[in-house]
Amino acid sequence: MILADSHCHLDFDELAPDFDTVMARARAVGIRRFVTIGVRVRQHARVLAKAEAHDDVFCTVGTHPHYADEETDISADDLIAHAHHPKVVGIGEVGLDTFLANAPWDAQMRNLRAHIVAARETRLPLVIHSVRQDEAMAQVLREESASGAFPIVMHCFSGGPALARTCLDLGAYLSFSGMLTFPERDYLREIARDLPADRILVETDAPSLAPVPYLDQRNEPAYLTHVVACLARLRGTSAETIAEQTTRNFFAAFEKIPPLEQLS
């Protein structure tokens, strides 16, 4: 089984004490590509360092909505300049979040639109963080797509059916994390069950959002197999089929990442 973790944070301190062992466990279960995600443009160097140190690791550049007010001066041109690096394969994560984030709304919105400009210009996928802002996010995506299309990956999708439909209409990929296994997420499992197979990605968001049976523990990329197993049960197929399809989707979404010689 060959897998790709489309969203993790390999530079976070929680993974540092046993990083090499964490990566060995991930590779042992079949993960062949990792995208480690930027959350602060001013700390991009530490994210890029992880990507440069490992052939199978790539990265993104962006400002997480939690830190939007710290980087209001980051422009689309700044993002585009970083995106020229061969290991930078996406823009973000960026988005809207007033549930977990304290950054002002106008700062979040300004950063989101700047990142969209960069994604449109570079043709790299915009990696979106959207928490309890379905209507606002859908409106921005529709407005901006009307001005020119851009690739979209909805990271750790937790929205409702209306946002899912908007994303599908715009050609977005929806990525599912360990949250899919949480007991109270029946609505999310219904969405994942019914999505077109070619629109689904899988991720861990490690070191956060560990799946059942590791709830409230540190997450790591090796636990991606639990997300895959959950999707397989929901969709009435095998874990191997989910792995193959989501890995193909991964390379379609992140076109800058060189493909594996074989996917099965």
Score class of each variant (00 low, 15 high):
4 A>K: 11
4 A>P: 14
4 A>S: 15
5 D>H: 10
7 H>Q: 06
16 A>D: 13
17 P>C: 02
19 F>R: 12
21 T>D: 07
22 V>Q: 07
24 A>P: 05
25 R>W: 03
25 R>G: 07
28 A>Q: 04
28 A>V: 04
28 A>H: 03
30 G>A: 03
30 G>N: 03
33 R>L: 04
33 R>N: 04
36 T>K: 00
37 I>V: 05
38 G>V: 01
38 G>Q: 00
45 A>K: 12
53 A>G: 15
54 H>P: 15
54 H>I: 14
57 V>T: 02
58 F>S: 09
63 T>E: 02
63 T>F: 01
64 H>M: 12
64 H>T: 13
67 Y>W: 07
68 A>P: 07
71 E>T: 13
72 T>H: 05
74 I>L: 08
76 A>C: 04
78 D>H: 02
79 L>W: 03
79 L>I: 10
81 A>F: 09
82 H>F: 12
83 A>Q: 06
83 A>S: 04
84 H>A: 14
87 K>E: 09
92 G>V: 01
93 E>R: 06
94 V>A: 11
96 L>P: 10
98 T>D: 08
101 A>F: 12
103 A>P: 14
104 P>D: 08
106 D>N: 14
106 D>T: 15
107 A>H: 13
113 R>T: 14
118 A>F: 08
119 A>Y: 03
121 E>K: 13
121 E>L: 09
123 R>I: 15
123 R>M: 12
126 L>P: 11
126 L>S: 14
128 I>T: 15
131 V>R: 14
132 R>V: 11
134 D>R: 08
135 E>M: 05
137 M>R: 04
138 A>V: 14
138 A>G: 15
140 V>F: 10
143 E>R: 12
148 G>T: 09
149 A>F: 12
156 C>L: 00
157 F>Y: 12
157 F>S: 13
158 S>V: 13
160 G>K: 09
162 A>T: 05
164 A>P: 01
164 A>M: 05
170 L>P: 02
171 G>T: 02
174 L>E: 08
176 F>Q: 04
176 F>L: 09
176 F>Y: 10
177 S>V: 06
177 S>A: 13
179 M>Y: 07
181 T>F: 00
182 F>N: 03
185 R>V: 13
185 R>A: 15
189 R>G: 01
191 I>G: 01
193 R>P: 01
193 R>A: 11
195 L>H: 12
197 A>N: 13
198 D>K: 10
202 V>F: 08
202 V>P: 14
202 V>H: 03
206 A>N: 04
208 S>A: 15
211 P>N: 07
212 V>L: 10
219 N>A: 00
219 N>D: 00
220 E>A: 02
220 E>D: 01
221 P>S: 01
224 L>A: 07
225 T>D: 05
225 T>A: 10
226 H>K: 03
228 V>Y: 00
231 L>H: 02
237 T>L: 03
238 S>M: 06
241 T>M: 12
243 A>G: 11
246 T>Y: 02
248 R>E: 11
253 A>P: 02
259 P>L: 04
261 E>D: 13
